[in-house]
Design a protein around this nucleic acid. Structure first.
Length: 229
DNA sequence: TCATTAACCCCAG
DNA sequence: CTGGGGTTAATGA
């Protein structure tokens, strides 16, 4: 796919005409980072917006004791970074490339110029960010109130919605290549607890686990979450 | 209820 | 063979 073609698949870019996309492409050259690279660090995030074209990026914070908490997993089509007071939620966080990743680095003056010329883009950004905000608020509610069991169920449902592939009737396969360690970092618990909680959920036939793969029964899981909260 | 510790197995690199 | 990942059980906050 050509470079402009790539750009048009970035969610917020859908609203731009081709000519504007070419302009963005000129301003924000492609950039390849290898798996494991730290893209963002607390404190050092210049006025840059990153457009994620290929690969996966994990956004996380580190506690004083050194424990990591994952804020978001981003896939192709997403944006992240900060320009001035326009924040995508990465402030004070790390961003790490989970695989070899292709992204564009879009600087503040260029972003502002395009936005002034194409107000639809600004509106689109607002939509994307407010959707993200809503999700974070929902997540926050579940994190603050629930026990591990319901936090995990909620997380699995969200992952199923984002990375899920319906394969077997009501069962949804979460194809995000996540370890128990990763799941633990997303709900603020430990590997062992995730493991035994998954085993328990599996006994109740709410999830099915195999080597490196997790399937969720979406309707049953959702009912369970409603019932117990 | 859950974190922690620790011991174990499995498997891919 | 080594290290990462998954599982289970005991203990104690």
């Amino acid at each position: 796919m050509d470079k402009v073609g790539y750009l048009s698949r970035i969610n917020i870019m859908e609203v731009l005409p081709r000519q504007a996309l070419m302009e963005v492409d000129r301003d924000a050259p492609m950039n390849v980072v290898t798996r494991g690279t730290t893209i963002l660090q607390p404190g050092h995030q210049g006025d840059v917006l990153y457009l994620l074209k290929e690969g996966r990026v994990r956004v996380y914070k580190v506690s004083a004791e050194g424990k990591e908490f994952t804020l978001a997993m981003l896939g192709p089509g997403n944006i992240f970074g900060e320009i001035g007071s326009l924040s995508t939620g990465t402030e004070g966080a790390y961003a790490e490339a989970l695989e070899d990743t292709v992204l564009c680095l879009w600087r503040k003056p260029d972003v502002e110029r395009i936005m002034q010329q194409h107000p639809q883009l600004a509106l689109r950004v607002m939509e994307v960010l407010s959707h993200r905000l809503k999700q974070m608020q929902e997540l926050l509610g579940h994190m603050a109130m629930g026990d591990v069991r319901s936090r995990l169920l909620y997380l699995l449902l969200r992952l199923a919605a984002e990375f899920g592939a319906d394969d077997d009737g009501p069962w949804t396969l979460i194809s995000a290549d996540l370890t128990h360690q990763d799941l633990a970092a997303m709900i603020g618990t430990t590997r062992e607890t995730v493991s035994s909680t998954l085993a328990a959920l599996s006994r109740e036939d709410l999830v099915r686990t195999g080597r490196k793969e997790i399937r969720v029964h979406r309707t049953r899981a959702r009912e369970e979450l409603e019932a117990r909260s």
